[in-house]
């Protein structure tokens, strides 16, 4: 039973990590290797807003979301847009940007175990005899809400539909009068906001540490690859697969192996079925 509950929580967390990455890749084909860095960065922004400026928590969170979104959009508009479509340069540049952010934070003194965010709600409840604190329940609720809202957003709003159009066929989207550069910037903005959202929801569960940036990136990539790059729903399903696999490893093998499982999963998926479990045929052809 505890496997079920903690597996679900872990899976939702993974889905939150991955959605931003999946969105950016899906729309603009940018493998955003700075995703983990944005996640950590937004954690520290919230912390600074709370502790240095003394803003109320809710305000700090909203501001963080906006700020991170703007930072992401700016990174894209100022830097990455110039190398759009040059896959390798995109990877290297975004990776370098992420590295600069993370190591810059580390240099700036944001290290150690001293940085924590308060939970939204204190306290805990018992579900079927297992103690679960409210924050973790909230993670699941927010995760589900985000997935639902994203679905509504991409199916019923103009921007969302444009983003989906871009994701399916950029040239066709261009011909329909969708500004693909603008949409890529918007997607990057939203993707960064999703990273920030994941951060403010998940970070109260532990400390804010720079190393998390690399782990989040790896997990996000793992989820997206296994789900099929660019397929959002695939990512959600893959998040559950990896999430439960990880919890099972922790229970039966030990916490050390948690990351090993994720890495092994990526390697196996790429080797056996490069398009991911739910990737589309077209992507397979591009790849192989």
């Amino acid at each position: 039973m505890d496997i079920l509950i903690y597996g679900t929580i872990n899976s939702v967390a993974l889905a939150l990590y991955a959605l931003g990455f999946a969105m950016v890749y899906g729309v603009s084909r940018l493998p955003n290797f700075a995703h983990g860095a944005l996640y950590v960065l937004s954690g520290f922004i919230t912390w600074s807003l709370l502790n240095s400026l003394g803003l109320p928590y809710a305000v700090a969170i909203v501001l963080t979301l906006l700020l991170t979104g703007i930072i992401g959009a700016l990174i894209y508009q100022l830097i990455l847009i110039r190398i759009r479509g040059m896959e390798i340069s995109e990877i290297m540049a975004s990776y370098a940007i992420g590295l600069a952010i993370l190591e810059g934070l580390r240099w700036g003194g944001f290290k150690g175990m001293t940085y924590t965010l308060p939970s939204f709600i204190e306290g805990s409840t018992t579900i079927a005899g297992i103690v679960v604190d409210y924050q973790r329940l909230l993670v699941v609720v927010i995760g589900a809400a985000v997935v639902g809202l994203l679905w509504l957003f991409t199916h019923y709003t103009r921007t969302g539909l444009a983003l989906r159009g871009m994701a399916q066929d950029e040239r066709a989207a261009l011909m329909l009068g969708i500004d693909s550069d603008l949409m890529a910037v918007v997607a990057m903005g939203f993707g960064s906001m999703l990273a920030a959202l994941a951060a403010v929801v998940l970070l109260p569960l532990g400390n804010i540490v720079v190393e998390a940036g690399y782990n989040v990136l790896i997990l996000a990539i793992a989820v997206c690859i296994i789900g099929g790059l660019g397929s959002w729903m695939g990512s959600v399903i893959a998040a559950f697969l990896i999430g439960f696999a990880q919890i099972l490893t922790v229970v039966y093998l030990g916490a050390h192996y948690q990351m090993v499982v994720a890495l092994l999963a990526i390697i196996m998926t790429l080797i056996l079925k490069p398009s991911g479990l739910f990737g589309r045929q077209k992507e397979l052809e591009e790849r192989v």
Partner: peptide
């Protein structure tokens, strides 16, 4: 991984050293 190209090879090659380090650790 050799049939993979572009991003996919890059991602997976990034994983290998991380994976090795984690395995040695674990």
């Amino acid at each position: 991984c050799l049939p993979l190209r572009g991003v996919y090879f890059a991602i997976i090659s990034l994983m290998y050293p991380l994976f090795s380090a984690r395995v040695i650790e674990a």
